[in-house]
Amino acid sequence: MELHLTLIFNGIATGMLIFLLAAGLSLIFGLMSVLNFAHGALFMFGAYAGTYVYILLGGWAGGWSIFYFGLGLLAAAVIGIILGFIVERTTIRQVYGDHLRQILVTTGVMLVVMELVRVFWGSNVIQVGRPQVLDGRTEMMNVLFGHYRLFIIAFGVIVLVGMLIMLKKSKIGLVVRAGVENKEMVQALGINVRRVFTFVFIFGTTLACIGGFLWGPYQGQINPNMGMDLMLIAFIVVAIGGMGSVGGSAVAAILVGLSEAYMAYFFPPGALAVNMLIMAVVLLVKPTGLLGATR
């Protein structure tokens, strides 16, 4: 029982981090059918940039570390906004409406951004620690709950609830939801979907960069391969949850997080295969994903 509680707890924490990566990917795809292959690279760039600031300010030792951690998070978010804006304006916008070339262009961006990470910060693994305040554990019902994991779950839930409220209540959320359902109709009603898309793209990139920064202390390290590895998982999550559905991404992310946690305990090499199997089954039964719009 304790084992399962621990695994479920870990799985939900991992799932929440994956959700941060997948939510933006899902909205970007849902709105403009752009399969953004650069997402993983942007996630990694955010991780490196935020961690760089975090370590430069003083790292994880001492009482001030939570403050440095917060500034690192902020730096990752700012980098996400800047990168998202640049990438959307200079590349994706230029090949608007052509799926094939969009995939190609984002692949090119992925290559460049991934190499930039190696140019700026080298190819080595960088160790990252948790800020002192979040480093402890609390025992409850014979299960150890890590504070950092609790923090990530809380953070993920806040982002999820915030996104759902924004999508339901705000004007821009209304446009996004309508755009996912029927982009042409929204355009015909006189709303500039492209401008909304720029916003969504920047938002998605920022979430990815924040997720990347949070990933470092979670795993204890960051490395130049993390972008590719996690992007594949994020794609699987988006395919399972349904393109364009934030709620679906959350459900699928937790599902994948749980399977990762269980497989990591029982048979680590099989983790990806199990996720693939889940995806294949979902796609065969319901090609639009669990909560995807039916089109």
Binding site: V95, L104, L111
Partner: peptide, 16 residues
């Protein structure tokens, strides 16, 4: 050593 970056940029320009 990071020659891929050059090809990445050329690649993006060619696609566009």
């Amino acid at each position: 050593e990071r020659w891929v970056i050059l090809f990445g940029i050329i690649f993006i320009l060619i696609v566009m």
